[in-house]
Design a protein around this nucleic acid. Structure first.
Lengths: 147, 147
DNA sequence: GTACAAGTTCAAGTGAGCTTGAAGTCAAGG
DNA sequence: CCTTGACTTCAAGCTCACTTGAACTTGTAC
């Protein structure tokens, strides 16, 4: 019958820390029911939702953006494969853009740095549209990294 | 003669805020000399150095990593093109890795989400090596985004 | 001589995405 | 009855990459 999962089970299966799961719930990204004790009980489809969140983060979406995407899914029932893939189509575009940007940067490194043009402003490669620039005080958006 | 630039000039030419330039200096990423007044005066080659920092950030290096790379350059004279490109070779590898990861994620989105396997752990695509995972409390590393 | 822009330092704030710690609840086992 | 362990909430802390504000000095223009 184990249709409901505890937070530790969900954490183990998803690889996402329990504290992060609570955090996601607080942000409205996932839901939980409660046992009589007040403990969280997760319906199984939450795993897919979490997988999607992890996926989306790796692609580079913020939790807010992910939330907006997830809001397009029905809350009352498990979404269909069709519904999931409708969301994902948007993201492949994002991935493509990012790959293109990285390829531009790679050319910049090999071509642009060899010559003397790497002085910004002049060099289109260093500043392609300036899409990453300025969007508030916090850290600028960055790439994977993790190493 | 204007061999020396003020902080506003450097800021304007590089597109990096003056506050950020001071911050970079504090972190040891760039140097400045001082006018009699105590105001910063930058030698021209600093622009290339800043360009490199901006570049490297877009690729996904942290300021600490960038600092480690820049430490390999001579401080007493302007580095040669050869010296710059030695640094950059490392980074192209990083870009390639990141592009590969994004391509894996893209396959994951189109193949993996259509089927039912998107439950993490089972799905290799969702967790390729787990390179981005766990490295301290802060935000996980993320990608560009910037909108 | 006084206004004003442009610079200085230092401390504190910001935002994202969490983690950690304190203090408490609840169910099962000995 | 007491401990253990899994859970709860809430507040505070942390990293990264900066920005912002306060209080102050300097150089130039009128």
């Amino acid at each position: 019958m184990s249709e409901q999962l505890t937070i530790t089970e969900v954490s183990r299966r998803s690889g996402v820390a329990a504290s992060a799961l609570r955090f996601y719930e607080e942000k409205g990204l996932i839901d939980s029911e409660r046992a009589g004790s007040g403990h969280r009980r997760y319906p199984r489809p939450v795993l897919r939702r979490i997988a999607f969140i992890v996926f989306a983060q790796k692609i580079g979406l913020t939790l807010v953006e992910i939330g907006e995407e997830l809001d397009k899914l029905p809350r009352d029932r498990a979404p269909t494969g069709r519904e999931w893939s409708r969301l994902s189509s948007k993201w492949t575009g994002r991935i493509d853009e990012r790959i293109e940007e990285l390829e531009r940067l790679r050319s910049g490194l090999t071509e642009c740095i060899g010559c003397g043009c790497l002085s910004l402003g002049k060099c289109k490669l260093a500043n392609p549209g300036d899409r990453v620039a300025r969007s508030g005080p916090g850290p600028r958006a960055w790439i994977s990294g993790g190493g």
